[in-house]
Structures are given as structure tokens and as C-alpha cells.
Design a protein around this nucleic acid. Structure first.
Lengths: 199, 199
DNA sequence: TCTATTTTAGAACAATCGAACTAAAATACA
DNA sequence: TGTATTTTAGTTCGATTGTTCTAAAATAGA
């Protein structure tokens, strides 16, 4: 019926993610987005609504492409391995992050949830997905004997989400390998602490 | 020699902390600060310099009055007790935080360090102080037998800073008692895990 | 080839931003 | 009491903010 869109929505969202990710919500202007996505103001507002809605789309895009993808990749592994490999990847990504952008979800958690309950629910939902990923693997590991049963699976999962968030924060400020690996190591040691004489 | 200041610097800094803490750096305008501190634009720029410098002063004020004070209060306790009491207070404060402001230092870590290396160093310095607080107590606890020696004191301290940051992030998004206490409990259990048959 | 429909391109909008400026007010020292 | 010095109180500045508007350009169906 009408003129088709010239731009590639996925590429535009990638560019928008880059902007919001590295600069944050407030510090990213519409003109930043225009310059980096290549589309014009009218197209942006026409296709995505306002700045807030555009951020929402960008965040979803990031979550699915980054966190969701990582969880899917770890699903094929053994429970303990899945958790360890998850954290190994987080540490590696944090150390390779020369721009110190950190994780866009964690950034969103402190940046954008404050005065927008809708965003808070979105972020809380993703955190819940991550917690359930950990919980699933912890339970599986407890069942096959590779994970300690000295603590409740729910608490272990909550602890893992906690240390995940913590590592992401630390990495933004002090991206040292010793710090990040040191912060993670006790959590992984705790998981395996079932039969303690087995060294 | 000249006209003395009418305002109370400490009260002004308290008000500034409230602004920056709840709204963040970018979202806090000079006019917000003027309205909430009670002083005028000229007085503000005259006494504190520009917005950036004012934020720096406010952050210092917060750190000394909140984090520094908490560490000082825990210094008189036994090592294990000091760590546990520290986290108990963090969880309590997070649950009582109806505004979901979280910890201003953690907010600063993700908000203001990105494109200002000076701020990054300030925040990193405070994190180091907290890490050293934990390290001191862990070492003391390992010496008197109340803390496990199955992991290096350095790693335990790093882990504790990590989970501290993590709890602060989680609380911003999902301030549930079960989540926060669940995230902390395994870390405290790990500290005590020295003689594992003692249940 | 016409026409309806939608995306483009870029200018324009009011509002707000951080910062600076001009005087008036006020006080410690002489 | 006079004077030097500093804080006050608003106003004002140019730049930038998010958003909207007006046309021109482009294409699918008739």
C-alpha cells in the first residue's frame, strides 16, 4: 500500500543499545540516537514512540541478545558446569569491557527504575529469570550430588544473583582480574562444599 | 573582614545528598539543588564551584556520614559479629528504604564514573576501604578460629564486597526480605564453614 | 498511470539545562 | 563611623533538551 521502511530495525536497535548502554538514559539525547542509528527524528518517533518506549525496546533487545542468549547457551551443560561457565563468561566480558559499560541491565536497575515503576517491573522480571536459571541448575546439581545440600536451593540461587550483580558493579569501578575472580571464587567453592574431605 | 555566610554547610550538604541520592547526577538540576538547599545560584557556585564539584562534596559527605560511620560502629565488635552486623544493617536499611534510593555510593559507581575518571577513582577508593574493613575482620576471625581458613582471606573479603554491592542492586529493584537475606545467608554460612561436621 | 498511504528529511517549538552576571545587602576591621 | 570584602538575590545567557510540524519522496494497489 505504501512506502516501505528503508532501515533495518535490528541494526537500529543495536545502535540504540550502544547509545543507552554507554551513556545511560538521561545522558543519551534524541540527537545522539539520531546520529548513531542513522534514522531521523520523525522516523524514530513514528516507529518507536517516544524516548522512553525506545529505551524499553532497546533494553529488551539487549536482554534477549545478551542475557537470554547466554542462559540458552548454558542450558546444555551439566548443572555445576552451567553455573561456573556463566560466571566465567561474565568475568571475561567484564575484563574485556574497555569502555567500562558494564551490563546494561544492571545499569538500568540503578538508572531508570527509580522513578518509573514500569521499568522496575521489567528489570525485576529479568532478574527473576536469571534467578530461576540458577535455581534450576542448583536443584539439578543437588539432585545429582554435584551441589551442596547444606543450604537451601532458593538461598543459593539468590546468592548467585547477588554476586552476579555485585561483580558487574565492581567491574565498572575496578576491573581487576584478581578482584572479580576473587569475588566469584568463594561462591563457586560454596556450591561444591558438600563432601569437604574430598580435596 | 567581610560578610559571614548565613547557611549551615552541613545542612546544605545534607540537602544536596538527598537530591543527588534520589535523582542521580544528571537528573538533578542546579534549580533542584537551589530549591532544596535554600541557597541561591550565586552562593552555590561561590561556595562549592560547579555542579560536578558540588556532587563530589555531597558524595564525600554521604560516605563519611553513612559508610564510614557504619564501619566505625562495627570496629568494636568481634570479627564475625562485625561482618554479620554490617550486613544485617545493610539489609535492614534496604528494606526500610521506601524511596528505593539504595546506596548513594553504588548509584555513583554506575552513574557518574563512566565518563569521569576522577569520580571512578573516588568510588574505587571507598570500595577499597570497605574491602579492607572486611579483610581486617576476616583475618582476625581466621586468627581466632571463628572464620574458615579454607579460602584465602583476600578472596573472602572480595566476595563480601561483591555480595554487598549485589544486595544493594537487588534491593533497588526487588526489595524483598527473602531475596536479600537469602542472598546474604550463604556468604555468612561460608565464613563459618570451618569444621563442617559441627551441625 | 493515477492515487492513497506511509516514510522520509529537516526546520521549528517551548522548556529547561548549567553557568555567569549585576547590584544590593551585610559585616569585620580600621 | 567608614570602608573593604564577601555573600546574597535575581536576572540573563547561549546551548541543548524532548517533541512536533510541514512538505517532499517513495511505493503498493487500482
Amino acid at each position: 500500500m505504501a512506502r516501505p521502511r528503508k532501515f533495518d530495525e535490528d541494526a537500529v536497535l543495536d545502535a540504540a543499545v550502544q547509545c543507552f548502554w554507554s551513556r545511560g538514559y538521561e545522558a543519551t539525547s534524541i540527537r545522539d540516537l539520531i546520529a548513531n542509528t542513522g534514522l531521523t527524528g520523525a522516523s524514530l518517533y513514528n516507529a518507536f514512540g517516544d524516548k522512553r518506549a525506545f529505551y524499553q525496546r532497546a533494553l529488551d533487545h539487549y536482554v534477549e541478545g545478551s542475557i537470554g542468549e547466554r542462559m540458552r547457551r548454558c542450558e546444555t551443560l551439566e548443572p555445576r558446569e552451567a553455573i561456573e561457565s556463566f560466571f566465567a563468561e561474565i568475568v571475561k566480558r567484564s575484563l574485556d569491557d574497555t569502555e567500562h559499560k558494564g551490563c546494561m541491565l544492571v545499569n538500568a536497575a540503578l538508572d531508570v527504575t527509580s522513578h518509573d515503576p514500569a521499568f522496575q517491573e521489567v528489570v525485576a522480571g529479568v532478574l527473576l529469570r536469571i534467578e530461576e536459571f540458577f535455581l534450576h541448575n542448583v536443584r539439578q546439581g543437588q539432585a545429582d550430588g554435584s551441589v551442596t545440600t547444606s543450604l537451601a536451593a532458593e538461598d543459593l540461587a539468590r546468592h548467585l544473583v547477588g554476586i552476579l550483580m555485585g561483580v558487574r558493579v565492581l567491574a565498572r569501578v575496578r576491573p581487576d582480574r584478581a578482584l572479580l575472580e576473587g569475588a566469584v571464587r568463594p561462591a563457586l567453592a560454596l556450591l561444591a562444599a558438600e563432601k569437604p574431605g574430598a580435596s
